[in-house]
Design a protein around this nucleic acid. Structure first.
Lengths: 191, 191
DNA sequence: AAAATAAGATGCATTAATGTATCTTGACTC
DNA sequence: GAGTCAAGATACATTAATGCATCTTATTTT
């Protein structure tokens, strides 16, 4: 029986399996055993690559999130771009929610870390899309630079995260529209 | 050696111990054994009262949160009341954060439940303070009723939760002030 | 004072997961 | 085609926590 996977191939398959387990049972329900079985391999193979549940899980989440890159091109209109941004972000909602599955874990207890740190580690440079959109809008004169001050500048991200974390699912389109039209734009629009 | 605790007395002591363990090690690090030892009792005593980790933890969180009742009397001024509301809420921040410590647990996996459901179960009728404050402000004419529409009406609670969950700590006073002055009041103030 | 009840201590079997060592076999390198 | 390396399969010991049963002892009830 041929077909023996190696290196990056194998690694990808294992991370996919880990992601499936994570989605199905959550972090506490994830075992190396189950991941190995689902990936059609065995525990020693996992043990050679990752040090335990936490590193494996982080790797799996990062691979998953990387599948949905954020990219909002210039549409000439802030509102359109913000809605597009939220739509794309919603595609990775489950990945984001999974991060919080790590909450109760040793991860935070040992690392003296808080969820925000983990989030930063997972998204890496991926979190720069919103500032770019807002910058363009300022250039255009759609919004006033002086209104774009903390905590207003990060408001949409904040609302999005809260929803995802509390509901383990993506915010519905009409809620996203309400965020933009009833909250964010009224606050920043040059009046 | 006298002094044998019973009934409600004993129960309170156990829940305090469970809370301490929860704060110190997080949900995944909490064991019936450790709670029993910290409370100066033994596992069978816990087993007779709670069915396992999850129910014990919920009970401990509820007892903790009950120690900081929310009560914002009429101060005649919306801004003052909102700041007071956020200040009181901050006192229970750790309790709220602890709720999310349950994330990775069997709790959500089995109950087909999301964090919002758990939150509702824990706060019970305690979450009605903000609507009351806003109602008063509408009566006074400080804010326009028609601006108090979802998701604006719940905005302060949303911001508060997001901060607590992401940072495992209470928001600092100047951030709370910024939420009120730069975000919430501009949105609802009768213009 | 006697009886009922529940606290507190202890022991044991069970379950679940992990780490690690060993061995065979397939696949890639030179 | 030989040699090397890692995949894949097993096995075993260890650890951690739980459930349950039993027994003693303190406290409350009547």
């Amino acid at each position: 029986m041929g077909e023996r996977r190696r290196g990056a191939d194998l690694e990808r398959a294992i991370l996919d399996a880990a992601w499936s387990e994570l989605s199905a049972r959550g972090y506490s329900g994830l075992t190396m055993e189950a991941v190995a079985e689902r990936a059609g391999t065995s525990r020693p193979v996992l043990a050679r690559r990752w040090d335990g549940k936490a590193p494996l899980t982080v790797a799996a989440i990062r691979q998953e999130i990387a599948k949905y890159p954020m990219n909002v091109p210039d549409r000439g209109d802030l509102r359109t771009e913000l809605l597009e941004f939220l739509e794309q972000a919603s595609k990775r909602a489950i990945g984001i929610a999974a991060v919080f599955t790590l909450f109760s874990s040793e991860y935070f207890a040992e690392a003296a870390s808080v969820p925000n740190d983990l989030r930063a580690a997972v998204v890496q440079g991926n979190g720069t899309m919103l500032p770019a959109i807002l910058d363009r809008a300022v250039q255009r004169g759609d919004i006033a630079r002086e209104k774009l001050v903390p905590p207003v500048d990060a408001l949409l991200g904040t609302l999005f995260r809260e929803y995802v974390v509390m509901n383990f699912s993506a915010p519905p389109p009409d809620l996203r529209t309400a965020w933009v039209d009833r909250i964010f734009l009224p606050l920043v629009r040059a009046s």
